[in-house]
């Protein structure tokens, strides 16, 4: 990780380069966990349940 490496190898200029944002995202398991639960919970479960509750009642 960047914060680990920065201290150890200041002499190597390549290590000074900040880690790109997408790589940081992919290196963060808990952020991925959050997204992996949030997306299906919102689009599949919550939206789906809302649709079920909106089914009209037959006469």
């Amino acid at each position: 990780m960047s914060e680990n490496n920065d201290g150890e190898s200041r002499t190597d200029p390549a290590d000074q380069e900040p880690i790109p944002m997408m790589q940081r995202l992919l290196d963060n398991p808990f952020l991925l966990l959050l997204l992996g639960i949030l997306v299906p919970a919102v689009f599949y479960i919550i939206w789906g349940i809302i649709e079920i509750t909106q089914i009209p009642i037959a006469e």
Partner: peptide
């Protein structure tokens, strides 16, 4: 990552 975000929608 595409799996993490979208695979579960296929339920």
């Amino acid at each position: 990552l595409m799996y993490i975000l979208f695979l579960q929608l296929a339920s």
